[in-house]
């Protein structure tokens, strides 16, 4: 039985028994190689669900839609490993009750797809610990290494070229499961900290602040990178921040539902080398 049929049956069962009120999954997109979110609230709608290696978006952001979980009913959602980590972070930041989320987990490698056993986020604890251990070993990225070897001036020019393309559509913010603030800093205008115009200066400020706000929270699902209409390599800067959180504070984002946010906690012996 293919994983798609298997998960459709499971989703159908969950809805039919009334265990969940909604299933958030993937459906066919505008072209054969795209997938778009599908929201199924009755067993009949489940047949629209698709599950294959093209399902790469992190759907956890839909769970923090205002009012969705306030009736204390459960919602099932299709999640890749990054998505499961997002649930941990959202729960740790008190944005949702993880017990209300039924996870239909799967992971992909190339065109292969395989299911992940479990339903509640706690069922995946061991799996995430394994992820974090593997991450410590393989945290280098050729493009990041190339950038790190440049002079500051060259890096500035690189990002100047990239950020000058930004049109301030905020698609990155919209696509990001971690960007749930009701009022984003960029929408605050008294005082106006960040230039809202789409000139390079404002784009620098916006992208720096977004990366900073995601430091230690980003799970590198790549939603922002894919959403960007002008293809700014946002994953590079987010990845750099994740590496920083891991190296400096041994913090792997989304490890558990009780993990303290890295910038809202401290250790008395945090070691730095630059404070005079």
């Amino acid at each position: 039985m293919s994983i798609e049929v298997q998960y459709r049956d499971r989703a159908k069962e969950l809805l039919a028994k009334g265990e969940v009120k909604l299933v958030i999954g993937y459906g066919g997109g505008s072209t054969p190689n795209r997938r778009r979110p599908v929201f199924a609230s009755s067993p009949e709608e489940v047949d629209r669900l698709v599950l294959d290696s093209l399902c790469i978006a992190n759907l956890s952001g839909y769970l923090v839609t205002e009012g969705l979980l306030s009736d204390e009913k459960k919602v099932a959602v299709f999640l890749r490993p990054e998505g499961i980590r997002s649930i941990n972070i959202l729960a740790a930041e008190n944005q949702l009750n993880a017990d209300q989320v039924v996870i239909l987990g799967f992971e992909t490698a190339g065109s292969d797809i395989r299911p992940l056993e479990g339903g509640n986020v706690l069922d995946f604890s061991e799996f995430i610990v394994t992820l974090s251990e593997n991450r410590v070993v393989s945290d280098s990225d050729p493009v990041i290494d190339k950038l790190e070897n440049m002079s500051a001036q060259e890096r500035f020019s690189f990002w100047q070229d990239e950020f000058s393309k930004c049109i301030k559509c905020y698609a990155c913010r919209q696509a990001c499961p971690m960007c749930y603030c009701r009022r984003c800093i960029v929408d605050c205008n008294q005082p106006q900290w960040i230039n809202t115009s789409a000139h390079t200066l404002g784009n620098f400020e916006w992208n720096i602040i977004r990366a900073f706000h995601l430091a230690g929270r980003c799970v590198e699902c790549g939603n922002c990178d894919r959403a960007c209409p002008v293809n700014i390599p946002l994953r590079l800067v987010n990845r750099r921040m994740a590496v920083e959180a891991l190296n400096s504070f041994d913090h792997f984002a989304g490890l558990s539902v009780t993990q303290e946010p890295v910038l809202a906690s401290f250790k008395k012996d945090d070691t730095e080398t630059f404070i005079l």
Binding site: L147, E148, A152, Q153, E154, R155, F156, S157, F158, W159, Q160, F204, N207, I208, A211, F212, A215, G216, V237, R240, M241, E244, A245, S248, F249, V262, L263, A264, S265, F266, K267, K268, D270, E272, F274, I275, L276
Partner: peptide
């Protein structure tokens, strides 16, 4: 202590974006 963590992250971010670390002192 909170500020120190924030500086550590922000300093490496500015460095990665290409704003020289020599210009922002702590």
């Amino acid at each position: 202590y909170h500020a120190r963590r924030r500086w550590m992250v922000f300093r490496s971010l500015l460095d990665f974006i290409g704003i020289p670390t020599d210009r922002v002192k702590y």
